[in-house]
Simulated assay, not measured.
Amino acid sequence: MEWTFERLSRSLWQPSLVGSYFADRGLCGVSGNSGLLRFHDSDSGLIAQRFVDGAFGGRGVRADVFAFDWRARQFAISTCFDADGNYTGGGQPGMIVALDPFDMVTEPWGLTIDKFESALTLSAVQDQLNPELFQSWRDSHQVEPLTLTTCAGVGMPGFYGGILEVENLELNNIEVYLSFIEQLWTRAVEQQPGEPAPKLNL
């Protein structure tokens, strides 16, 4: 897969664990392949950071976001995982971690921040981004290139049994969507085993 990038914003996002790495490289506010992957600017970064702090912080994950994909899966730097991906709670060198609002899975990559761009050329990483599903969803719903404020949100998240398919994806405002997922996740973890999922209407 070839990458093409365009700038959507010139504002910078430099959280403490990320620092100026992507700002210095001129990547803040940049979108790749019509929104398949986007680097945070100051506005989108604040929205995503609030979600990560609220939804993952309670599970002991401290992470600073720097990019996100078309489904609002967040890419961040965390000191909570070692190079083998084991959770340690903190004190480790900063490593890349992916945080997925679909199923609330935390995926440590075991790579430092300077390896992120080269990782985008790996077939395993590209498969995770799922460009084919992204294009099918855009074609089906006639979606224009995503901005820094939009994403493909699921109507039924994975932690309630939803699956990633075109029929379960719709164009959403990313702030509204992440707030919805965080509130739904808070409810889900409080439910007793066997209780049915609520009727969802986003």
Rank of each mutant, 00 (worst) to 15 (best):
N130E: 05
L133N: 07
L133Y: 04
L133S: 07
F134Q: 12
F134S: 09
Q135H: 10
Q135A: 09
W137H: 08
R138I: 01
D139G: 12
S140F: 09
Q142W: 03
V143N: 08
V143Y: 11
E144P: 00
P145R: 13
L146R: 09
L146Y: 02
T147V: 01
T147A: 00
L148F: 04
T150W: 01
T150M: 06
A152D: 10
A152P: 06
G153K: 10
V154G: 01
V154P: 03
M156G: 08
M156S: 08
M156Q: 14
M156A: 08
G158N: 07
G158Q: 10
F159E: 01
Y160W: 13
Y160M: 13
G161W: 00
G161C: 06
G162V: 10
G162P: 10
L164P: 02
E165L: 07
E167M: 07
E167F: 01
N168R: 03
L169Q: 05
E170L: 12
E170I: 09
N172R: 13
N173L: 07
N173R: 04
E175S: 06
E175D: 15
V176I: 10
L178S: 05
S179P: 02
S179C: 07
E182T: 04
Q183M: 10
R187Y: 11
A188E: 15
V189T: 14
P193S: 08
P193R: 03
P193N: 13
G194Q: 13
G194H: 14
E195L: 11
P196L: 10
